[in-house]
Design a protein around this nucleic acid. Sequence first.
DNA 1: TCGAACCCTCACATAGATGTGAAGGTCCAC
DNA 2: GTGGACCTTCACATCTATGTGAGGGTTCGA
Lengths: 125, 125
Amino acid sequence: MRIGELAERTGTSRRLLRYYEEQGLIVAARGPNGYRDYAEASVDRVLQVRGLLDAGLPTRIIKQILPCLDQPRAIYFPDATPEMIATLEAERDRMTRRAECLLRNRDAIAEYLDAVREYDGVASA
Amino acid sequence: MRIGELAERTGTSRRLLRYYEEQGLIVAARGPNGYRDYAEASVDRVLQVRGLLDAGLPTRIIKQILPCLDQPRAIYFPDATPEMIATLEAERDRMTRRAECLLRNRDAIAEYLDAVREYDGVASA
DNA sequence: TCGAACCCTCACATAGATGTGAAGGTCCAC
DNA sequence: GTGGACCTTCACATCTATGTGAGGGTTCGA
């Protein structure tokens, strides 16, 4: 598919799709006219990238972890350098902390909202 | 406490502490000499702000949700406008999605790391 | 064959979080 | 009372993710 369709299906601007490619996060074949030609799987890929970006990971890190998440993987175990392992472990822990922070604060918001609802229920009763 | 101590205890530059204050995320009393004077609770507050920033929330949103998380709360139920409620609900859901994305990808990283460990174990055996 | 709707690259602009440094005031220990 | 280590404000710099637009090629249907 071409960039316009991918943009529409992922809710991502063409500009950003080109940027993600420039950052090595997605790949695109090229037609004889130079147009980008995306595989069907690119849709999920872009969505995954956007999710990670939205969760605060920089493209630099996303680029490093993506290949390990592919099935089939783009990085096989023998290729994993100790540095990469260390990066992945650090990032895994960092993501855990991030998620915890997110859930903790989300629960607090939810609790507040529940209290508001209860207050309104009592007030209007 | 003064800004230097808070910076050290939170691992945050003075510059950023002033920035967070400018954005309305933290407050500081002022001594007669103009120096900022932070309460003990500022340490936790700053840490919370940093966690949320790191998880991808912009200061604008953090500023909105923080008052609802305080104990005692800075925003009481009668003060909650419908717009604020809507913002909080949207943000709560957004945080849930972010956390899910984070945990899903973290689990995939963990799985990869487990597989690497297993591979290394077999290879070295 | 023309126009609309795509696509390309390149480059400059913006917004948010952060760094850095200048110019200057305050406090304290020697 | 002087020097060093704090503090203040202000302003400009940087990085990353993004927007926007210019200048130009391609495809396709009327």
